[in-house]
Design a protein around this nucleic acid. Structure first.
Lengths: 338, 338
DNA sequence: CTGAAAGCGCTTACAG
DNA sequence: CTGAAAGCGCTTACAG
């Protein structure tokens, strides 16, 4: 910047103003000279100097568990792209769903003077509490703030669960089961709750709804284990809600091992609608969550926080349960007929 | 830091030295006092101030196309974790395989004073040329430097292709085909080349090897399209190399639509060995690339570059073609018997 | 309309 | 063994 200033015969203050578009009645001639110097020297403002001065960078931290999950990857892609359009870049932190790692990252990100935090499926932790208390701009995605309150982007999980209940009942499956995780996140437990509530409301006896709860953190293994428990304690159900697509994948593997045809013998309904399903999981019905639209909402929430506007939860609409459809064609909503 | 200094009754220079462990014969008493102050005030050094002074941050930029590809996600996870262990954080830039976006990011990352670049499947571009000319620490992953030279981490793609040729021949499939992408990356074109070379070397007439080349950027759609071309021009082959798992997924979809049983009627062999295959793609044989080990190699390469040591290419060993195996159990290498 | 100066948080020769 | 001072690249009240 000093070089540009010298080259253009002005002060660095002037260069700074012009670079930042703060040209309240600046002389057109000066502007031209400076811009010419900038171009000639191919000068680019240094983000770090700027960040130090502002005490905030144009970097946003995204903390997420396991990118291995296609749903997480989809969120990351979407948020990254939306941030970029808004002039920010994203540091990706893989927390593996572990509180200590989350806190390590939270600290490291603070040292980076990040402009905000995107917490995907955050877990409760000391550091999260402090971040929130400090008032740092934070938006929660997919899983609500475990400490309550705060900006949030996600679907109405209870409704999604209810939709699956309606769908399975509509398929003539009168005693569907539910496969879920032991470590309960708000999102998946709400799906299960909404599912069960609706079944009960429609006349299914509460104790006729079989619940299988798999241990661990990996949803795919949870699905495999939960399906195993379910089958051991009473055979394959005719249909089941898997609270995430990954859980459905795990259950599928067991079905293949048992030679149980899916979906003919047991209809599995997942939640996420991973893009890959349309290619290699013709057997899966899933509630699609439009993760590709999450980025825009997350950035809007952040911008509200930055400008001091209070934010509320954003509920993105999910889609009806649907299965296999033609590539390129719009998703074919499954009719109740199964 | 000034606060800590005041609190401990020393200068900021002293605090800085102690924070950075530069305690050449420092008085133990001073150290204790400073550390106590640091703890009391829960002081943490500011990365941005540090970066400005050093003119280099502890941030590494990773530029990758489409995280939607599980292989890319696996690389991102691995690199992120290895960087973290080395005290760095990772900015993730999704280039969508487009040169202009890659250049935008390269510029933005330079402004961030990133310590290095991890280019996953980079494309040739002006900005890449400049970055390299400038001598910025850069390591290429999966796809070689399109401009030649440079640090690289990946498998021996030619050998992988040859292995698939041996495998298919060993299955008694005498006229296997190959499905590949039009936009040729070094990695996938080397796989195809190694495959064909080996087939020819083992007596398959060159013009008996059917090659299907799909257009576009999305490997899954490339696979679908390429399979379509292949089938239209001579029916389903008895076996094929798909130069990536995603391409195999695309081909699989067409097979399902055609009612062609995979692998009985047509054995598909992919490359990547995505973790998900073991759960929902029992029909796929794949060469597994141990992406989980890439992070360590990438960081080692970067550290060499930082310390001015010249680096060479790192070739990670891939695994033999294998299919469906028990979860938790070691991958069962497929025998030639099919 | 523009410049001089202070300061964001840190590090590092240079003195002492 | 430790401190005063300069400087990394930028922004912004304050003067003029």
């Amino acid at each position: 910047m000093a070089t540009v200033a010298r080259d253009a015969g002005v002060s660095v203050a002037t260069v700074s103003r012009i670079v930042n578009g703060k040209i309240g009645r600046a002389s057109a001639e000066t502007i031209a000279r400076v811009e010419e110097a900038i171009a000639r020297l191919s000068y680019r403002p240094n983000s770090v100097g700027r960040a130090l001065r502002h005490r905030a960078s144009r970097v946003v931290a995204m903390l997420a568990p396991n990118l291995d999950n296609p749903a997480m990857a989809a969120i990351a892609v979407s948020v990254e792209s939306a941030l970029r359009d808004a002039g920010y870049v994203m540091i990706l932190c893989d927390t593996h769903d572990r509180a200590e790692l989350q806190d390590d990252y939270l600290r490291a990100m603070r040292d980076q003077l990040v402009a905000g935090y995107v917490m995907v499926s955050a877990v409760r932790s000391k550091g999260l509490e402090e971040t929130l208390k400090r008032g740092d701009p934070t938006v929660f995605v997919a899983r609500r703030n475990p400490l309550g309150g705060g900006a949030y982007v996600g679907i109405d999980n209870r409704q999604a669960g209810a939709d699956v209940a309606d769908f399975l009942l509509g398929c003539g499956i009168e005693r569907p089961a539910v496969l879920m995780a032991q470590q309960n996140a708000s999102s998946t437990s709400e799906r299960a709750a909404g599912f069960i509530e609706r079944l009960v409301a429609r006349g299914v006896p509460n104790d006729a709804i079989r619940r299988a709860i798999g241990p661990g953190l990996s949803h795919i293994e949870i699905g495999y284990a939960a399906a195993g428990m379910l089958v051991r304690e009473g055979g394959w159900p005719r249909g089941a809600l898997c609270v995430s697509d990954m859980i459905a994948y795990g259950a599928y593997r067991l079905a293949v091992e048992h030679g149980v045809p899916i979906p003919q013998r047991c209809r599995l309904v997942g939640v996420d609608g991973n893009a890959i399903n349309a290619w290699i999981a013709p057997w899966l019905t899933s509630i699609r969550i439009p993760y590709e639209s999450f980025g825009g909402h997350v950035v809007a929430q952040l911008q509200s926080l930055w400008s001091g506007v209070s934010t509320s939860e954003v509920h993105v609409a999910h889609e009806a349960p649907s299965a296999w459809s033609n590539p390129g064609a719009p998703a074919r909503p499954a009719t109740g007929a199964g």
